[in-house]
Design a protein around this nucleic acid. Structure first.
Ligand SMILES: NC(=O)c1ccc[n+]([C@@H]2O[C@H](COP(=O)([O-])OP(=O)(O)OC[C@H]3O[C@@H](n4cnc5c(N)ncnc54)[C@H](O)[C@@H]3O)[C@@H](O)[C@H]2O)c1
Ligand SMILES: NC(=O)c1ccc[n+]([C@@H]2O[C@H](COP(=O)([O-])OP(=O)(O)OC[C@H]3O[C@@H](n4cnc5c(N)ncnc54)[C@H](O)[C@@H]3O)[C@@H](O)[C@H]2O)c1
Lengths: 206, 206
DNA sequence: TAAACATTGTTAAAAATATAACAGTGTTGT
DNA sequence: ACAACACTGTTATATTTTTAACAATGTTTA
């Protein structure tokens, strides 16, 4: 089953909130509760949940635990995904430590940098290797996804290596447009874009 | 003129690339060049550019400088936007220094934290104040947008203060769902969602 | 027990977004 | 000069995504 991109994004958000609520001891949740915590609409929530073939209980809403599991089946599939992160500067550190806090089926299994000071240090349970070890480690750890948080000058060069070593997906924060073969899934994020969007809509809500 | 959200996002991306190309001494650019650097399609580029009422020159493409200016008129409006950032941890530092590198009409005018070690330090040209100064500074600097990169426990509390002091837009990285009045534009970003999306599409590309 | 209710699940309609098709037009080459 | 070309600009079409409408159904209440 292949779901709309947007639904995938929302499912991920639902799971976060659901885990949150589960921790607080809640067992059931209504579509409108889930919606209001995310500024979505209840209809949209119900529709997404319909799409993944889960069905709640009338008048009690969804059983949180079950729904989390169902979302897991969809998002995670059977496979655990191993990722690496390249560039252990401020952003790399922030992301690594953030990631480690979350219960997810994706694991950052290694980090890479060129700065001698960072090599062999363990940050948030992730060991940092010299970039020259990348092929070796990618093979060893069966890596399919990479997060790029390194200095932009080196980004294309490293991207080429990733491709050579069979990377399947990249989450790119380096804000330079990477030249990457079509078949590899690339997701770019640039917070300047987010800010400009916020500013635009702030200035245009009459 | 109010443009589609998606076009706004793309315009911001175009500008980045255009600035890039301008620096390299390029003066004209074709829709297909712009497109390929961003993994968009040429048609989409042309359509977006049509929407903002800019027109290129036949067979030479767009005049980069002019197009940058036109995008600026749209995205920036006449007003310079002043922003603050709350939480000068790893993520806050990364974002602040990144932002400062970019030529944009949005400026991070102040930072806030509770950690005494950070108070009054200047990081990437931005001075960090104690969070208790927030009202004072927001008034003084005419702040309309806030970036939240603080510890999640404190996020709601600070958000309430922002609302009280008349914030108009928030870019929220704290991954907890903020309870904020409808009329305030909130953009959430969570990199776990991006990663889960990448993993999903990597595992499902037949 | 039956009516009112609150909530889900689903189908239908609308809106937003992306893609395609192609006309228009200056430019180049012959 | 004029035909072929390589682009842009625009309108039309298709696809994706959101929203609305409402039927179905278990639950509560009287
Ligand atoms: N997209 C966004 O929203 C966003 C936000 C902030 C920063 N950034 C970008 O993310 C990147 C990192 O930002 P930062 O603030 O952490 O910078 P930083 O300078 O703190 O970190 C960069 C790290 O990359 C390492 N590095 C350099 N060359 C390398 C190579 N060839 N292989 C491996 N590692 C290498 C450096 O040693 C350093 O540790 C930059 O490209 C920056 O522009 C993007
Ligand atoms: N959305 C994402 O993709 C993403 C990625 C990484 C981190 N995060 C989140 O961003 C936040 C910061 O991450 P980090 O790695 O920089 O953490 P960090 O611990 O390095 O920084 C947090 C900072 O917030 C400050 N702070 C705490 N309470 C405050 C208050 N009341 N007012 C002002 N400042 C306060 C702390 O002193 C600290 O400097 C966390 O909430 C984290 O979960 C989100």
């Amino acid at each position: 089953m292949i779901l709309p991109q947007k639904s995938i994004e929302r499912l991920s958000r639902y799971r976060r909130i659901l885990l949150n609520n589960l921790e607080k001891g809640k067992e059931h949740i209504y579509s409108h509760e889930l919606a209001s915590q995310l500024h979505f609409t209840p209809v949209q929530v119900r529709r997404d949940i319909m799409l993944i073939g889960y069905t709640g209980t009338q008048r009690k809403g969804y059983v949180i635990k079950e729904l989390i599991d169902r979302i897991g089946e969809i998002l995670d599939g059977e496979s655990h995904t191993n990722a690496i992160i390249i560039g252990m500067g401020n952003l790399g550190k922030a992301i690594t430590s953030y990631f480690n806090g979350k219960r997810t089926n994706i694991e950052i299994a290694a980090a890479f940098d060129t700065d001698e000071q960072k090599i062999n240090r363990v940050i948030s349970n992730v060991r940092c290797y010299h970039i020259s070890k990348i092929k070796e480690k990618m093979d060893e750890l069966d890596i399919s996804v990479a997060i790029m948080t390194l200095a932009p000058e080196a980004a294309q060069e490293v991207a080429d290596q990733l491709v050579l070593n069979g990377i399947k997906g990249i989450l790119n924060f380096t804000s330079i447009p990477l030249n990457i073969p079509e078949h590899i899934y690339v997701e770019d994020y640039d917070m300047v874009t987010s800010m400009e969007k916020v500013a635009y809509f702030v200035n245009h809500n009459e």
